[in-house]
Amino acid sequence: MAAAAAAGAGPEMVRGQVFDVGPRYTNLSYIGEGAYGMVCSAYDNVNKVRVAIKKISPFEHQTYCQRTLREIKILLRFRHENIIGINDIIRAPTIEQMKDVYIVQDLMETDLYKLLKTQHLSNDHICYFLYQILRGLKYIHSANVLHRDLKPSNLLLNTTCDLKICDFGLARVADPDHDHTGFLTEYVATRWYRAPEIMLNSKGYTKSIDIWSVGCILAEMLSNRPIFPGKHYLDQLNHILGILGSPSQEDLNCIINLKARNYLLSLPHKNKVPWNRLFPNADSKALDLLDKMLTFNPHKRIEVEQALAHPYLEQYYDPSDEPIAEAPFKFDMELDDLPKEKLKELIFEETARFQPGYRS
């Protein structure tokens, strides 16, 4: 834990890192770190609560700039109880001085990944967590956004079992017609939660990839272990087919990539493993919904509104309290091709509203 900075004593240090967030945020305490930044909790002297502050230093890398800009653009436009918001952003007053960006968010005690390492969940908890994931996802999908990296560590939890989806750095506007060349190379989302079509096709992607990830998360809540822990690309596919069985001819016809289709045709026939054999203690309604989410063919996979209306979630289902976005989200430009200098300018502009004396 960093010592509390005395008023006016300059930035606090946390594990050798400068955290320049005073005077409003003090009493910093280390939480963890990701690929390009550290997260601390801090005391907000204005709202009198502890908050989470993520320090991001992305400006050396085009990919990190892209992810940072995506996350900020999306989260500043989203407003939903099951999606983490941005409360404040701290950065230098000029673009030349801006080396880091500090993002202030609600402090959540833990995440689903940490929880599943230590606790076996009751059916009631599984049901409530799944409902909140789908409630947040309904809003995301209504904005025409794909999260693309749903996994237990991106689901934040607090002691009252509130759940918030975080990390929109890989999110995209849904565009089933656009052929994202190089899709697989830039697709760094965790393999275990990846839909089979991501490994088999490169053309376009749809909201059904997020539903697949939610199915993987439900299976993990039922058993405290990942359902498809593939060691590499082909191993991942083999794990999936080992449980779902061989795809039907109709399902194979959806695979545009001939090499991928021929690979699947070359494999020995596998039978589907019954879900109640894998999860003998699970609620039968939970397994019915799991089956509809972990469907090989993305066109037959359940959609988020149908999933919310499934009998497993009937005690929570309330369409009048499951809000959607006001308007579909649009990125003005494809960020993939922009140089990091341009992305830095866009991050600077996007964060201006939090600067003292800002006038829109």
Rank of each mutant, 00 (worst) to 15 (best):
E350N: 02
D162E: 15
L289C: 10
D162R: 08
I211W: 07
E33I: 00
S266A: 05
L294H: 03
E12L: 10
W192S: 12
D283G: 06
L267Y: 01
S320Q: 11
W192R: 15
L234K: 05
C40R: 15
L121H: 03
L313W: 06
L200K: 08
L244H: 00
K285Q: 11
K73T: 06
P328F: 10
S246F: 05
F59V: 15
L69S: 13
A6W: 06
K164Y: 09
Y263V: 10
Q315K: 13
K300D: 08
T159P: 11
L222D: 08
L265P: 10
N123G: 09
Y30E: 01
Q315C: 05
F331P: 06
L69H: 00
I324E: 00
S122H: 06
K55H: 12
D288I: 09
I31C: 06
S142A: 01
G32V: 14
S122N: 14
L107A: 04
R24S: 14
I302Q: 08
W192V: 11
Y64T: 14
L28A: 03
E71V: 13
K330Q: 06
G32Q: 01
G34E: 13
D251W: 08
A325C: 02
N123W: 03
T110M: 06
D291H: 11
D175G: 00
A189V: 14
S213G: 01
F228V: 02
N154M: 10
N253G: 09
K151Q: 14
A174K: 09
A6P: 08
F296H: 09
L121N: 01
K330I: 10
R135T: 07
V46F: 12
V145W: 05
D44Q: 11
V14W: 04
S41Q: 04
V273K: 02
I211D: 11
H125F: 03
A35W: 02
S248R: 12
R67K: 14
Q17E: 05
H125S: 02
P298D: 01
V214K: 07
G215T: 02
N82A: 08
M38R: 14
N281D: 00
F296L: 15
L146T: 03
N144H: 04
M293Q: 02
D235Y: 14
T110Q: 06
N45L: 12
F354V: 09
M108S: 05
K48M: 15
G10F: 10
L156Y: 07
Y113I: 12
L170P: 00
H61T: 14
Q249W: 06
A171C: 02
R15C: 06
K270E: 01
I243R: 00
L267T: 05
I126T: 00
L150Y: 06
L278M: 12
D149R: 07
V46D: 15
S360V: 08
H299I: 07
R70Y: 03
D337S: 07
V145F: 08
S29A: 07
V104I: 12
G169Y: 08
R191C: 07
Y131A: 03
N257A: 07
N238K: 13
N47G: 12
I243V: 03
M38I: 15
N144S: 08
N271T: 12
E197S: 10
V214A: 00
V46A: 10
I90V: 08
A143W: 03
L69R: 15
I165H: 07
P339A: 11
I126Q: 11
P226N: 07
D100I: 08
W212S: 12
Y43L: 13
S213N: 11
K117V: 01
Y312P: 03
L267Q: 15
T118F: 09
G215E: 12
R50G: 07
R67A: 08
R135E: 02
R172V: 06
I84Y: 08
L184R: 01
V145K: 01
M13Y: 04
D179R: 10
L157R: 10
K48A: 13
I256G: 06
L146E: 00
N87G: 01
V214D: 04
K99Q: 13
K207I: 10
T351W: 00
I90L: 00
K138H: 00
P229C: 01
A2N: 00
G16Y: 08
N154R: 02
M199Y: 04
F228A: 01
D149S: 02
R77W: 12
S142L: 11
T181Y: 07
H269T: 12
N158P: 04
P339Y: 07
Y205H: 00
E341S: 11
Y25P: 05
P319L: 12
Y102D: 13
G215W: 09
D88Q: 13
Y25F: 14
T351M: 01
F78C: 14
A325G: 04
